[in-house]
Simulated assay, not measured.
Amino acid sequence: MSEIRVRPALLSDDPELARLDRVTWSTLHAVRPPLGENEDFFSEHSGPDTFLLAEIDGRLAGFIKMVPPTPLASNAHVRQIRGLAVDTWARGRGVGLELVLAAVAWARRQGALRVTLRVLGHNTPARRLYEAAGFTVEGVLPGEFFLDGAYVDDVCMGRLV
């Protein structure tokens, strides 16, 4: 099996990340509409410095986004995962877990003490992945989103770094 390589994102990764975001978009994990066909992946508030990428044999396999949850100094010791995607061809190869663990290590290097995230209650595969990476449920916002005709819980998870 090929080795998973995790690296920081570059501005030049934008087109491939936009493609990956479009092909993996689903209401299983997304509450916002998908990117438009000609829409950039990176934005003013979401630049390359907030993403780690996973590659297998030089091919983009997935990404994870991590940011401070707020701009407040009193919250500076926390980082929050705000996006994770693994391309269909790379699923089941450990890419998601590798990205999550790399993000936790990245947070530690930035001086963070905790990492948090929010995951949709019906996204069982993601919840299992985060649990495997040491995250526990810290709260649930019942029926927070209305997706595909059903109310879906927003599950808050966290762990120490």
Rank of each mutant, 00 (worst) to 15 (best):
R82F: 11
G47L: 08
Q80D: 06
A61P: 06
A90R: 02
G58W: 07
L52G: 00
W25I: 05
P48F: 06
A73I: 10
G62D: 11
F41H: 13
I81R: 02
G36C: 07
L72A: 14
G36W: 04
Q110F: 12
T24H: 08
R93M: 14
S26R: 06
A112Q: 04
V78E: 06
D148S: 15
G36Y: 04
F42Y: 14
G121N: 07
T27E: 15
K65Y: 10
L141D: 14
G96Y: 01
N38D: 11
Y130F: 15
L160C: 11
G158F: 13
P15I: 01
V104T: 15
H45I: 12
P48M: 08
T50I: 13
P125A: 04
V119F: 04
H29Q: 13
L113N: 12
A90G: 11
E98P: 03
Q80L: 10
D14T: 06
A150D: 14
T24L: 07
V78H: 03
H122N: 10
V155F: 08
D148A: 15
A105H: 12
R128D: 04
F41A: 07
A103D: 12
R127C: 05
H29G: 13
L129Q: 06
L117D: 09
V155I: 08
A30K: 03
A85S: 15
A30N: 14
R79V: 00
L60F: 05
P71A: 12
R159W: 12
